[in-house]
Design a binder for these strands. Structure first.
Length: 462
RNA sequence: GGCUGGGUAGCAAAGCGGUUAUGCAGAGGCCUGCAAAGCCUUAUAGACCGGUUCGACUCCGGUCCCAGCCUCCA
């Protein structure tokens, strides 16, 4: 029984798809004018975890994650770079896909782009004008008339009369009401534009998501998600647009991912305190980042720091160390089923609003059992290690080659290291421990830690 | 001003009205030539003040503090 916290009702609810085994999920993806930062990484990773788990529950999951490839920021950046918007956005889309690959993120089923959805956008705006939810102002822009939508503000719990409108952004004077937001914006000379029934221009920020989501998933679908900062105004406006135009419930379950913080402050473009995914990947591999993101619940703030990333690395290393040297191939479901309770508890954790910290704690309990068994009962240890790797795979970790994970980032060659290990072991046989310890210290300078086992000496990076 | 969240051990992070969370770091032990890894044992919690209860970290009320939103943001 899968439970999901719904922003709409502010409580955990039993999740029931609209159509039996079919689940439609839409996630607000990137506006592509820069590299993805850690905030994006959290949304990308968490919805990857969420859709992986949904696919284990339901046969037919359709995951749509959009790309907004036209907006003011993109236009501004393209002008700065003296390039056209497509060159700019294509470059950052490619970069995003590279980042996702490193983070072990499975691609969404559909990745629609705003610029390929113009017809649907026109259609929706027409419908909104027709039904009295929108108007074209004297400057040509088309606005959504917020006070015409009686539920406006309900979703994000805003009292329209107590909003500090214009506190931060100056109010566009063509609006009939300061609360109104733009659906279609007339283009200035030399700006990218599309011909519309209202003149040459471009879509406003929110309309593209209403158009893309309903086009691919229908007017009423199961799950809509994104970062917490999108609840207002973006998702509030999406609801107003979609329900105004289609006259039916838009989305059943709304999911929002908490912020990534730096020094207890939200990481954001405006504060310019953000780290890009690719910067972080220079020092920590994708699985470590992924583990770090999963180590807190998706609602809680996630504090980004080297200290916390290093902890994630140590923790993940424990799991890899546990399966090291064991046979994790040839998963034998029959034998694994004996240890069903780990699987059950792992699944229960994810069923409870995708509680990844609990799911991870089950993996550590399993790891402890593997370590206890590995000396007495190798078969048992192999089976449990297989289960550990399998469960890790459900949330996208423990998928690297174990040796590669434990040895990455060493400047010496395998040959150099092995020679030193051989020399050290010769010294140990001769009981020349001064020499053997000297060699070990030498390797330690390169962050290489030796481990003497019954079967010989292995090494790993510190 | 209006509206959301949250304050848990050295750090990170969950569940739970009574019984070990978990990980990293620490202490003692086993193992080891010594280590490392692993295992065993172990210390350190629930912002503050009340209330409900046989019993509260958990429920209720209040206080303080922190973060976020109120038309750039994921």
């Amino acid at each position: 029984m899968l439970k999901i916290y719904n922003t709409l009702s502010k409580q955990k609810e039993i999740f029931q798809p609209i159509n039996n085994d079919k689940v439609g999920i839409y996630v607000c993806g990137m506006t592509v004018y820069d590299y993805c930062h850690m905030g994006h990484a959290r949304v990308l990773v968490m919805f990857d975890v969420i859709t992986r788990h949904l696919r284990r529950h339901f046969l037919n999951v359709k995951y749509v994650r959009n790309i907004t490839d036209i907006d003011d920021n993109i236009i501004k950046r393209a002008v700065e770079n003296k390039e056209d918007i497509y060159t700019l956005s294509n470059r950052f889309i490619d970069a995003m896909h590279e980042d996702e690959h490193e983070l072990g993120i499975l691609p969404p089923d559909i990745e629609p782009r705003a610029t390929n959805t113009m017809e649907q956008i026109f259609c929706m705006i027409k419908s909104l004008i027709q039904k009295g939810f929108a108007y074209q102002a004297h400057n040509g822009d088309v606005y959504y008339s917020v006070r015409h939508f009686k539920n406006y503000g309900k979703f994000s719990r805003k009292n329209l009369n107590k909003l500090e409108v214009g506190a931060r952004i100056k109010v566009e004077s063509a609006k009939r009401d300061p609360l109104d937001f733009v659906l279609w914006k007339m283009s200035k000379p030399n700006e990218p534009n599309w011909s519309s029934p209202w003149g040459k221009g471009r879509p406003g920020w929110h309309i593209e998501c209403s158009a893309m989501s309903t086009h691919h998933l229908g007017n009423h679908f199961d799950i809509h998600g994104g970062g917490m900062d999108l609840t207002f105004p973006h998702h509030e406006n999406e609801i107003a647009q979609s329900e105004g135009a289609n006259n039916c419930t838009f989305v059943n379950t709304w999911m929002h991912i908490g912020f990534v913080n730096i020094n207890n402050k939200k990481m954001s473009k405006s504060l310019n305190n953000f780290f890009t995914i690719r910067d972080v990947l220079k020092n920590y591999n994708g699985e470590i980042l992924r583990y770090f993101i999963m180590s807190s619940h998706y609602h809680s703030p996630l504090n980004f720091s080297d200290e916390n990333l290093n902890k994630a690395k140590s923790s993940l290393s424990r799991l890899y160390t546990t399966i090291r040297g064991l046979n994790t191939c040839n998963v034998r479901n029959k034998e694994i089923s004996i240890h069903f309770d780990y699987l059950v508890r792992f699944n229960e954790a994810l069923d409870d609003d995708f509680n990844t910290p609990i799911a991870l704690s089950v993996l550590f309990e399993l790891a402890k059992t593997v370590n206890i068994q590995r000396e007495n009962n190798t078969d048992q240890a192999n089976t449990l290690a297989q289960l550990l790797k399998k469960l890790g795979g459900y949330i996208g970790i423990l998928q690297m080659n174990t040796e590669n994970f434990l040895k990455q980032g060493i400047s010496l060659s395998d040959e150099q290291i092995n020679t030193k290990i051989t020399n050290r072991n010769k010294a140990r046989i001769n009981k020349d421990f001064t020499l053997s310890d000297y060699i070990r210290d030498e390797l330690a300078k390169f962050d290489i830690i030796l481990e003497d086992n019954i079967n010989g000496t292995t090494w790993r990076k510190k």
